[in-house]
Design a binder for these strands. Structure first.
Lengths: 169, 169
DNA sequence: GTTAGCGTACTCGGATACCGGTTGTCCGAGTGGCAAAGG
DNA sequence: CCTTTGCCACTCGGACAACCGGTATCCGAGTACGCTAAC
């Protein structure tokens, strides 16, 4: 009843990040269709396609249409931060939106000339500060960092990925 | 089209926090009904009531029924962090939920005995790290800190609040 | 005058509808490759 | 054998529907106050 998990982040973020990792392991030479990328994780292809389009708009991937087409990384993994990916999928807006309710009702009118430039909302500032820390932490981690972590704790993964995408040619 | 602001936080967080500030300025002696607290910001009373119930469940407020009833702060403002408020309203679950898609499809079966205890998901770890920074920042700010900020940049506010709640007795 | 009892009005609390947005799906536009035909 | 040309299959891209969770609302349970009436 009370556990309503509201701050939920878009689920496509997980898909997009994993897919970016796979694309990095496969190299930026050949393009991989969305359908194949989706099949690797048994995801709905059309919906993953939607996420990849968002990544393309954000210049994280490049897309090429037609046969032999697909997606590939637009930059080196060192150049793409997790913040970039999250922003591309989840949008650029902050989680906490100050709607300035303090200006309404009781506090608003009674203060004579409303023109008094109210100081910035302290609550908004505090929330913004916390979100900034979150963004800074996300921006500090690149795809290359995540790749390094995976390869160190699970060295076989890159080969396995390459093998799978080659076999099911 | 692309700007879909997905990570949005529950709007009630703003209402709840502002209301907590007002309750702090009014003192913890008398209880204030949800209807009056809502009227101050011209908010829908029944819905704010819902948020205040959540704060009560989290032991941030105490509620008393009947005439002369209402809500009051359960602790000193120094004892309540913004993290407490956000958790009470938005729920305790993290924004990023790792669904472990990496276990499915191509990577899952082919690795012989699936029993191999896969290392923790690196993406999940990175996201969790960022969220931890966010939580730490929220936990570092108490209601008292926010109050101090407001009173320093806008000294008249506390009196104005008290006056309004006294006048509309 | 005092006190016990009752009615009433006010408040929280949870159960109940409504709506916007994420999730999921589909079809059209564009493009490169392949094959066949002609030189 | 080489070149050209037309067709076709494959891919992205954005438009369309469905389901879920936040938004908003309402009515019932409980309580303290105030009034009345009896002692």
């Amino acid at each position: 009843m009370s556990s309503v998990q509201v701050v939920r982040m878009n689920e496509g973020v997980e898909w997009a990040t994993h897919t970016c990792l796979n694309l990095a392991w496969l190299g930026a030479e050949r393009a991989v269709p969305a359908a194949r990328l989706a099949a690797f994780y048994e995801l709905p292809a059309a919906y993953l396609n939607k996420q990849l389009q968002a990544l393309t708009r954000a210049n994280i991937l490049t897309s090429v249409s037609g046969p032999r087409g697909g997606f590939r990384l637009a930059k080196a993994p060192e150049q793409v931060t997790l913040m970039d990916v999250v922003t591309a999928i989840d949008g650029p807006d902050p989680a906490f939106r100050c709607t300035e309710i303090r200006q309404r009702g009781g506090s608003g009118e009674a203060a004579g000339p409303t023109s008094a430039p109210a100081a910035p909302c302290a609550i908004d500032a505090a929330m913004r500060k916390a979100e900034l820390a979150w963004r800074r932490e996300l921006a500090a981690q690149t795809l290359a960092d995540v790749i390094a972590t995976v390869e160190s704790s699970n060295p076989g993964v890159p080969d396995k990925v390459r093998r799978w995408f080659d076999d099911t040619r």
